[in-house]
Design a protein around this nucleic acid. Structure first.
Length: 108
DNA sequence: CACTTGACTTATT
DNA sequence: TAATAAGCCAAGT
């Protein structure tokens, strides 16, 4: 169980500000992986064990809620994001560029 | 033990 | 411009 990247992924996700979202690739890049986005997805899948991991703030590069079906209910993810002020239409985040939070640039 | 799959992304054809 | 291939790590079969 060498989850060397898993823990790092969780920590970054935990640092996502409320009302902002990030992408799997951004997290992967911040961890030094060029294309470890899939691994980030796996980390999210395993994040169900944890309680402090706002996986709903992690979307794909297009701002699409691809992982919403992995939540308790398919609407949980969207509802949580909308509750934080993010507008979503047809599983697509509106003004994605504005709410996008890049750890490598904003977390420093 | 080897192959496939998975909440992805970028590059190439 | 759209479709396909390749690349990455971990876990499941």
């Amino acid at each position: 169980m060498e989850r060397q990247y898993f823990d790092e992924v969780y920590q970054v996700v935990r640092l996502i500000p409320k009302g902002r979202v990030t992408s799997y690739g951004a997290i992967a890049a911040y961890l030094g992986m060029r294309s470890g986005a899939r691994l980030v997805g796996w980390a999210m899948n395993a994040s169900h064990s944890l309680s402090d991991v706002p996986a709903h703030r992690v979307v794909n590069s297009k701002g699409l809620l691809t992982g919403k079906f992995h939540f308790k209910t398919p609407t949980t993810m969207q509802r949580k994001l909308e509750k934080e002020g993010i507008v979503i239409i047809e599983d697509q985040i509106q003004d994605f560029k504005k709410v996008f939070w890049d750890p490598s640039k904003e977390l420093l």
